[in-house]
Simulated assay, not measured.
Amino acid sequence: MISKRYFAGVAIAAAVAVSLTACAGSNSGTAGSTSSVNAKTAKTATSAKDVGGMDALVKAANAEGQLNVITLPPSWANYGKIIAGFEKKYPKITINSANPDGSSADEVAAAKAQKGQTTAPDVFDIGTAVLQQNLDLVAPYKVANWADIPTDFKDADGKWYYDYTGLMSVGYDSSVIKTAPKKIDDLLGSAYKGKVSIKGDPTQANEAASAVYMAALQSGGSAEDIQQGIDFFGKLKGAGNFQAVTPTQATVASGETPVVIQWSYNNLAWGKAGGASGNANFTTVVFPGTALGSYYNQAINVDAPHPAAARLWEEWIYSPEVQNLYLASGAYPATLTAMQDNKKVDTKVLESVGAAPKDFAQLTADQATKAATLLTSKWAAAIG
C-alpha cells in the first residue's frame, strides 16, 4: 500500500505482467443547456449536503441532463467502463466526451476558451504540474467518501484529490524486439532504430513529461533535477531511435509504434487485454531501480456548465465500484487502503494485478513545476 504522497529516489523491484479487463467505448454528443434546477446552489456546493443530500444532487444532475468530460480515452484506466457505468446508473444524463487523446494542457485550454459555453468541460482528470499552475480554474468539493482519501492525497479544502496512479513503463512488441529491455540505456541500441515513442509533447502532456522524469531517475538524475532525462532523449534522437509519432492503441496494434514509454496501465491495456483492438505481442516492463509513479487529480471546473452533474461524477469516481474499475486496469486507486480495511476491494482483481508498490518516486508539486519550466526551455533544442 502506498503510505506517503511523495517518494523521491526510492528503489523498488521491477514489475509486473497482469491481466486486465477490456474497456467499453464511451458516448459523445452535443452538450445541452444547463438546467436552472438548483443550479446556483450546485455551483457553489462543497458537498452533497449543500444541495440537500445525494437524492437532491441526483435530481439536479438529472435536470441538467448532460456531463462534459475531456481527455478520457476508453482504454485509459478503464474509463470506457467507468463512463458506461455512470450512464447506466444515471440514464437521464448523457456524457459528452471531448478530445479523448488530448493532454492536461488541452483540458485547461478548453476550460478557458469555452468559459460560459455549454460545451466547456465540467470536470478534469489532470496532471499535477498543470493543475498547480491553474488552481483558479477549480471549485472545492468533498465527496461522501472524503475520509477514505488519505490526507496527503487531497487538498484540505477539496479543490483536488488524487484518483489513481500507475508506474512509468516501457511497452514493446516482442515480435519486433526479440530481447526484452532491462534498463533505459538499452533503448539506445540499434534494435530500437525509429521505434521509441512517448505520449505527445512533454511540455504539454503529463504522461510524456513523466517519460522524461523516468529517464532522469534511471540515468542518475533526480526528481529535483531532470536534466539527465532531457539529455537521454537527446541521445535517443541522435541515435535515430526517437519516433516523433504520438502512439495510440491503434498504432501499437498496427505495429507503427512498437516501443512506447507510458503508464503501466496504458501499456497493459494495449496488449492482450485490449482483445481485438490490442496487440497480443505487446509486453510491459518496469525497469529495476527507481520507479516513477504519478497520481492524476480529479477536480471540478469552477465554471462547469453542469455543476450538479460534475459533483455527481466525482461521487461516482470515488465509489468503491469505480475505484475497483481503476484497479482492474492496473491503475492503483487513491482509496485502495480504505477499501482493503473496509473489505470493499475486489480481492480477485487485487490478486490478479498485484499489491501496490510500497515505495516509488513521485515529483512533488514544486518539483513538477520546476521540471516543467526546465522542459519548456530545453526540450525543443534537445530533440530538434
Rank of each mutant, 00 (worst) to 15 (best):
T203I: 13
K183R: 06
L187H: 10
S210F: 08
G229R: 01
A215V: 04
D155V: 06
G189N: 15
A205E: 10
A156K: 15
I177T: 07
E207V: 15
M214I: 05
M214Y: 08
S169N: 13
G200P: 06
A211R: 02
S174D: 14
P202N: 02
I177F: 05
A209T: 09
D157R: 13
A208M: 05
A156G: 15
M168H: 06
L187R: 03
D155K: 01
L217Y: 13
K183V: 07
Y164F: 04
M168Y: 03
A209E: 05
A211Y: 00
V176Q: 03
M214L: 04
Q204I: 01
T203F: 10
Q204C: 00
E207C: 12
S190K: 12
T179S: 02
K159F: 03
S210D: 10
Q227N: 15
K159Q: 00
T179Q: 03
I230H: 10
G220K: 06
S169Q: 12
G234Q: 02
W160S: 07
K182H: 11
A216E: 02
D186T: 10
K235N: 03
V196W: 05
M168V: 12
G200I: 06
F233Q: 02
V212I: 06
D225L: 02
S169P: 15
G234Y: 01
G189Y: 15
A215E: 06
Y162A: 04
E207I: 14
